[in-house]
Simulated assay, not measured.
Amino acid sequence: MNEFKKLSTVKLENVYNFCNPYDSEPLLLESSALKVVTDFTRRAPQLILKDVDIDHALYMMVNGHVRSKLVIDHDDTFLGVVNSRDLTGRKVLSMAQKLSQARSDLSVEDVMTCKSELHALPYSSVKSAKIGDIIETLKDIGQQHVLLVNKRGGLRGMISASDIARALHIPVNILQKAHSFKEVFAIIHAHEDMFAS
């Protein structure tokens, strides 16, 4: 017995225009930050296993139209985040050299950002925040995204600079911050890679 029913469709022959985008509330920096949250209770997080090789990981991201994935082990334990820039930039080559491995032998775990280096916000604080507050927070921490945790400490969601930029149709430039001398070099090399492309 099928509990679903088919819906009736309509013809498009007399449809010529798009609806006015102002029929819905436009998003502004003053809009609720909840409007740009990727909420894991409504949409499953983008996950990737730590031992996937970097070429396959990049293929998965490109074909899935995503820029980052949460890294897990085989027990579904959260380990960190990997983004497409991690998989294509100088970081890959320097890690291959450091580990004395071929680039093609590197895994997601080798180039990911570990959870100890990431920042999170309590989901409850985002409920009363504005999109502009999130941008200021991302600028302050120098990262492209911030994770959200629930009261019990579980991952509830994520907000990314790229999602905000797409939603508001504005550029959102977040400069990485260095917390050590080693990170200064990594950031310089990352910016060289961006301008070389």
Rank of each mutant, 00 (worst) to 15 (best):
G154I: 04
G80S: 09
V108A: 05
K69N: 03
L12I: 14
I135V: 11
L28K: 15
A165N: 06
V36T: 07
V81R: 00
Y22G: 15
N173Y: 07
P171C: 07
I170L: 13
R156Y: 13
V36W: 02
S8Q: 12
G64A: 06
S31G: 12
H145G: 03
S116T: 13
I159T: 02
R85N: 10
V172D: 04
R166V: 08
E25H: 15
K11F: 08
L175P: 01
R156M: 12
V184E: 14
F40H: 13
D75N: 13
I188Y: 10
V66K: 03
D105C: 02
L12C: 06
S107T: 11
L106E: 03
E136L: 06
L49I: 08
R90Y: 01
M158P: 02
V36C: 08
A196R: 15
D55T: 05
V71C: 06
R103V: 08
S8P: 09
Y59C: 02
D55K: 15
A178M: 09
F40I: 12
H179P: 00
G142W: 07
D53I: 13
K127G: 00
A196G: 13
I141H: 01
L106S: 03
H191E: 14
S160H: 01
R90I: 11
D110M: 03
I159P: 01
I141E: 00
Y59V: 05
F181R: 00
V184G: 04
N63E: 06
L47V: 11
S104I: 01
D163G: 10
R156F: 11
T137W: 10
P171H: 10
K182I: 05
P45S: 11
E109Q: 13
D193T: 11
L99T: 04
T41V: 07
G80K: 04
Y16Q: 12
M61A: 05
N14V: 07
D105N: 11
K151A: 12
P171S: 09
I141P: 00
H191S: 14
G153W: 09
P26T: 15
I159L: 03
N63L: 05
L155Y: 14
A120I: 03
D133F: 07
D75H: 08
F185Y: 02
D163H: 01
V66Y: 03
V52A: 05
L168A: 11
S104Y: 03
A44D: 12
I48A: 02
V111Y: 06
I170G: 10
D140M: 12
D23L: 15
I48Y: 00
P26Q: 15
L58K: 12
N83F: 00
D76S: 13
A96C: 08
G80R: 04
N63A: 00
R90P: 08
S128E: 04
P21Y: 06
A57D: 02
F18H: 14
E109Y: 07
D140A: 14
V146R: 01
G157D: 11
N150T: 09
R152Q: 14
V37D: 10
I170R: 14
L87E: 02
G153I: 07
Y22H: 15
G154L: 10
T77E: 14
L99V: 03
T77F: 01
Y16N: 08
V81T: 01
L147Y: 03
N17T: 14
R43Q: 11
V108R: 08
L168S: 11
Q176F: 03
D110S: 09
I72P: 11
